[in-house]
Computed example of a mutant assay.
Amino acid sequence: METILHKAATRGHFDHGWLQTYHTFSFANYYDPARVNFGALRVLNDDVVAPGTGFGMHPHRDMEIVTVPLHGTLEHEDSMGHASAIRPGEIQVMTAGTGIHHSEYAEKGDTPAELLQIWVIPDRRNLSPRYENAAVAGLVRRGEICTVVSPYPGDGHGLWIHQQAWFSLAEMDRDTRTVYTMKSGDSYGVYAFLIEGEANIAGTDLSHRDGLGISGTDSFEIYAVGDARILLIEVPEVE
């Protein structure tokens, strides 16, 4: 088994006033040749957007974009005519494909929007653009590893993307254990991101917003040192 640890403090960080953003992998003005991707996982941004502000209409292409809201409300509009608000307990998936424009704003008021925006390289280019959001809170059972995004439409695991990739959430109580088993023998590995709490994953201690890439194994143990919320992203290799 091989692991690569990305401590939270080593991420790229930019303070734009209205936006506090942390980049696990190279993005925009942050570039580290050793941190360009983990298999098909290309971007993992941890954003806090001030109320009433956000990202104006901007383009994307040939990428699967998964947004996980953590706090507050994020308002979405896109060039396909969708207008919706996503909140904690929901996930948004967007296939940029041949091209899509969208905007994202934190709802006006006193509460910033905190979110993870994750890009996965798709299994092919020039797909038809697609947008979907859905509540996934009902799929998450405390103490278990629960899939919320998979490669397969309609399999009962929430949303889907155009890639042999799985997104899972684990909400664990202090001093409990579980095992993650790879869903595909062809997977490059799993990227574990500690949203909250403390945990030991595959023998490595992680705390708030640390990330760990795990490869070369069929399974690994997760031990919750304290109450923990963990995002696990299993991805294939890309050329």
Rank of each mutant, 00 (worst) to 15 (best):
Ala134Trp: 10
Asp123Arg: 15
Glu132Ser: 08
Leu116Trp: 14
Asn133Trp: 04
Leu127Thr: 04
Asn126Pro: 02
Lys108Tyr: 04
Gly97Cys: 02
Glu132Met: 04
Pro129Leu: 14
Thr98Ser: 10
Pro129Met: 11
Ile121Leu: 05
Ala106Val: 05
His101Val: 03
Leu127Ala: 05
Ala113Ile: 03
Pro129Asn: 10
Pro112Leu: 06
Ile118Ser: 01
Pro122Ala: 05
Arg130Trp: 10
Val120Met: 12
Ile100Asn: 14
Ala134Met: 14
Glu107Ser: 06
Leu116Ile: 07
Asn133Glu: 09
Ala96Met: 08
Ile100Trp: 15
Ile100Glu: 13
Pro129Cys: 12
Glu132Gly: 00
Trp119Gln: 03
Tyr105Trp: 12
Ala134Gly: 12
Arg130Cys: 04
Ala113Glu: 08
Gly109Trp: 08
Ala96Gln: 08
Gly99Trp: 14
Gly99Lys: 11
Thr111Arg: 11
Arg124Tyr: 15
Tyr105Ile: 05
Asn133Met: 08
Asn126Cys: 09
Asp110Cys: 05
Ile100Ala: 10
Asn126Ala: 13
Thr98Glu: 04
Tyr131Arg: 08
His102Phe: 09
Trp119Phe: 12
Asp110Asn: 06
His102Pro: 08
Thr111Gln: 14
Thr111Pro: 03
Asn126Tyr: 15
Glu132Asn: 03
His102Gly: 01
His102Asp: 05
Pro112Ala: 06
Glu132Val: 06
Asn126Gln: 14
Pro122Cys: 11
Leu127Met: 13
Ile118Phe: 10
Trp119Tyr: 13
Gly109Phe: 00
Ser103Thr: 04
Leu116Lys: 13
Thr111Met: 10
Pro129Val: 12
Ile118Asn: 07
Glu107Leu: 13
Ile100Leu: 15
Leu127Cys: 00
Glu114Ile: 03
Ser128Ala: 09
Leu127Ile: 06
Thr98Trp: 12
Ser128Val: 07
Leu115Thr: 04
Arg130Thr: 02
Trp119Asn: 07
Lys108Glu: 11
Lys108Gln: 05
Asn126Asp: 14
Gln117Phe: 06
Ala134Pro: 03
Trp119Lys: 13
Ala134Glu: 12
Leu127Lys: 11
Leu127Pro: 03
Lys108Met: 00
Ile121Gly: 01
Pro129Ser: 04
Ile118Cys: 04
Gln117Cys: 02
Ile121Gln: 11
Ile100Ser: 13
Ile100Met: 15
Asn126Ser: 11
Glu104Cys: 00
Leu115His: 09
Pro122Val: 03
Gly109Arg: 04
Ile121His: 09
Pro129Asp: 02
Leu115Cys: 01
His102Lys: 10
Glu114His: 12
Gly109Val: 02
Gln117Ala: 00
Leu116Asn: 01
Pro122Gln: 14
Gly109Thr: 04
Leu127Val: 00
Gln117Arg: 07
Ala106Leu: 00
Leu116Ser: 05
Pro122Met: 11
Glu114Asn: 05
Gly97Trp: 11
Glu107Gln: 14
Ala96Pro: 09
Tyr131Ile: 03
Thr98Gln: 11
Pro129Glu: 07
Gln117Tyr: 08
Asp123Met: 09
Asp110Gly: 04
Gln117Met: 09
Leu127Arg: 14
Tyr131Ala: 05
Asp123Lys: 15
Gly109Pro: 06
Ala113Ser: 13
